[in-house]
Simulated scan of single mutants.
Amino acid sequence: MALSEQKEEKPEDILRDFRASFFSMNRLASFPWTFLDSELQSNKSSEFISELLKQTCLHPLCGKFPPSVRFRRIFLSELIKREAAGCDPLDELYDALAEVLGVEETLHCHKSYFLPTGDAISLLENVAVISEGTTGLVTWEAALYLAEWVLENPQVFTGRSVLELGSGVGLTGITVCRSCSPVRFVFSDCHAVVLEKLRENVRLNGLGGGKSPSVTVDQLDWTTAPEEQIRQIRPDTVIAADVVYDPEVAGSLADLLLKILKCSAAAEILICSTVRNPETYGGFKLRLEAAGLGHQVLTGPVGAVFPYNRLAPIELIKVFRVQEG
C-alpha cells in the first residue's frame, strides 16, 4: 500500500512516496503508479518524471547508498514504459538507464528508510532473503513495525539502557538510537556474518566511536549466554523483532528472557513477530508459560512511517515474569 493512500494525493506527497518506496526497495506494484499515469495523461509533460528522477535515481543518497542494480533497472524500465505512453522522451531518463546498465550486479545493496525528521537510516543488506545460512541480513516487516512503534513511544527508551536481541541488520535499534536518546544501546546477534554487517551499519549511521548514546555490538548466544554477561548489560528495556520463526529457538529465547528478568527484574521486554506460522508462534507462547513468563498483547495501530506490506499479520507483546503464589 502506498503511504499516500490515506491522504489527499498531492504531487509533493507522491514524490515522497516514490522516494521512500524506491530507497527501501519496496515492491514495485505498491508504488503510486496511478497518480503518475494520470499526471502524464493530463499534462502530456515529462516534468513530473524529471522531478521523480531527482527524488530517486538522481538523488544524492542514491549515489552514496544505492539500491540494488537489478531494482534500479526494473524501476527505470517501468518509468520509460509509462513515459513513452504519455509524453515526449526525457533524455535524463534514458541516461540514467544507460548508466545503471553498465553496472555489475553484486550480492549486496543498500536500503534506506526515512525518519519523520527527513533523515535517512541507510543499511547494507544482502540481495537474497536467505544468505550464508541466515535470514539476518535483510530487514523484515516486524522490524519496521517495531521501529514505527518506537517512534510513537520514545519514553520506553529515553534515558534507558536498551538491549536488542537478534538485531539483524540494525533497523529497529538504529531508529531507537537516532530518535529516542537512550543512554546505552547494545545490539546483539549470534551469527558472525550478521555481526559483521551489523557493525558496518552502525558505523554507516554515525553511531558508536564515543558518541552519545554509548553503543556496542555484542555476540549473544541465547543457549549459552552467562548471567554475568546479562548483569553487565543490565538492560532497562529489551526489544526483539522477527526472532520466533524457528520452533527450535523458542525455548532458548524463553529461557534467556527469564534469565534477563532474574538479573534485571524491572526490565521492560517487547517482542514483535510476523505470525507466518500460527503453530510455531503459539508454541513460543507455550514456552514462555513453561518458563514462568506471561505476556500482554499491545494492540492499536501505529503511524505509517515506512513502506512495507501492512497486510502481514504482526503482533507485539510485552513479556513479564509471573508472580508465584
Rank of each mutant, 00 (worst) to 15 (best):
S4P: 00
S4I: 12
S4T: 14
E5F: 11
K7N: 07
E9C: 04
K10I: 11
P11H: 09
R16M: 08
D17E: 15
R19Q: 15
F22H: 01
P32C: 02
T34H: 03
L36I: 13
D37W: 05
D37N: 13
E39R: 12
L40S: 04
S42A: 15
K44E: 13
F48C: 10
I49M: 13
K54S: 10
T56Q: 00
C57G: 01
H59W: 01
C62V: 00
G63E: 07
K64Y: 00
P66N: 00
R73T: 02
L76E: 01
I80A: 01
K81N: 03
A84S: 12
G86F: 05
D88K: 10
P89S: 07
D91I: 12
A96L: 03
L97V: 06
V103H: 01
E104P: 03
H108M: 14
L115C: 02
A120C: 13
A120W: 02
I121R: 00
I121A: 01
L124D: 11
E125H: 09
E125W: 04
E125T: 08
V129Q: 04
E132K: 13
G133I: 07
T134S: 15
G136Q: 10
W140Y: 11
E141Q: 12
L151G: 06
L151Y: 00
P154H: 05
V156T: 07
V156G: 01
R160L: 14
S161M: 08
L165D: 07
G168A: 10
V169Y: 05
G170D: 07
T172S: 12
G173M: 06
G173Y: 06
I174M: 09
T175I: 09
V176K: 01
S179D: 05
F187H: 06
S188T: 09
C190F: 09
V194G: 10
L195S: 13
E196A: 14
K197Q: 13
L204N: 12
L207K: 04
K211F: 10
P213C: 10
S214T: 13
S214C: 14
V215S: 03
Q219K: 08
Q219F: 08
Q219E: 14
L220R: 06
T224I: 11
A225T: 14
P226Y: 05
Q229K: 15
R231D: 07
Q232T: 07
R234T: 08
P235R: 06
T237R: 06
T237K: 03
V249T: 15
G251Q: 04
L253Q: 00
A254L: 00
K259Y: 01
K262A: 04
A265V: 02
A265W: 05
A265E: 08
A267W: 10
E268T: 12
I269Q: 08
L270F: 14
C272M: 10
C272A: 11
R276M: 09
P278W: 03
E279L: 13
G282F: 11
G282Y: 05
G283E: 01
K285V: 09
R287T: 04
A290R: 12
A290T: 03
G294L: 08
L298Y: 02
G303T: 12
V305T: 11
L311T: 13
I314P: 03
V319Q: 02
V322S: 14
Q323D: 14
